[in-house]
Design a protein around this nucleic acid. Structure first.
Lengths: 151, 151
DNA sequence: CCTTGATCCTGTAGCTACTACAGACCCTAC
DNA sequence: GTAGGGTCTGTAGTAGCTACAGGATCAAGG
């Protein structure tokens, strides 16, 4: 039967993982790179977490879900940890990230356009001629087979 | 002065890099993972490439530009190398990749929606209160007031 | 009290797709 | 002949985890 006191504080690593949805090993990783503070330990060296750790890790997870890089999350956390952050600062970081996200979307949409347009011309027949291969070969003929030296 | 014969065949690795726009080291990497065939060597061990290598690497580069993974590119190349590929096969791989690309777009658009909607409520003031931090601290309490694109 | 099985610990290797460097060798021009 | 590049190999580093090996420890059943 699970420890009834584990829901408030005194959490094991597996409890923290379960409560946050974070992978067990990732918690240790975040600790290693300094995103999560070193937790207190039992006499035998086992990590014990409290509600502050749950909140901290949840913050990291939500930032991660929004696509922030570890470096950006580190920046957000250090702003908050500093205790004197402003909405303007946070907004600036958010806007920068939004720009990155939108650039990624545009890049993928460009790919989608080419890919969808090309595949639409595919016959789906059992012939070697293929518009997609033509695009990959850049409008040229079929690739000349290379005699492979080894492998 | 550069070798005047280097444009047709007998290319050095740096020539191949220049002609394809591929990074010098990446060529060796592609050779290592078997995407590019082991090229012939001079007596002293220097790689020499021909036009077939240029075409092959260009194919890889274009597939890469379209976001295909190395594994997918390997699949495309092995189809072509087999010499008996069909448009249907290539199309199937292309459609699968297109699905992946579209899923990525949807994921990023969901992020964009939340991020843009949240940042729009930022005051940009010198106060610690910040809608973006609210979302990161507790995704439930103050969600962005915008309909979420499903998935 | 002892055993068993689950969980915890540490360190390290693996993943993708490169990129970069160190140190040795080679090649070409002057 | 020598100076400077280019090329060779192997290895390490990047992001962001994830997974395992091999040992220590914990919690419950007998």
């Amino acid at each position: 039967m699970p420890d009834i006191h584990a829901s408030a504080s005194d959490l094991k690593r597996s409890d923290l993982a379960r409560l946050t949805g974070c992978n067990l090993e990732t918690i240790r990783y975040y600790e290693g790179i300094g995103l999560m503070p070193d937790p207190p330990r039992t006499a035998s060296g086992h990590r014990r977490y409290g509600t502050a750790h749950v909140e901290r890790l949840s913050f990291v997870m939500r930032a991660r879900d929004l696509g922030f890089t570890m470096e950006e999350i580190r920046g957000l956390l250090s702003l908050v940890d500093r205790g004197s952050h402003t909405c303007a600062e946070v907004e600036r970081m958010g806007r920068h990230h939004l720009d990155v996200v939108r650039a990624k979307i545009r890049g993928l949409q460009a790919i989608e356009t080419v890919l969808a347009g090309t595949i639409a011309r595919c016959t789906g027949a059992d012939t070697p001629d293929c518009p997609l291969l033509d695009v990959l070969n850049d409008g040229q003929r079929k690739p000349a087979p290379i005699e492979r030296a080894s492998e």
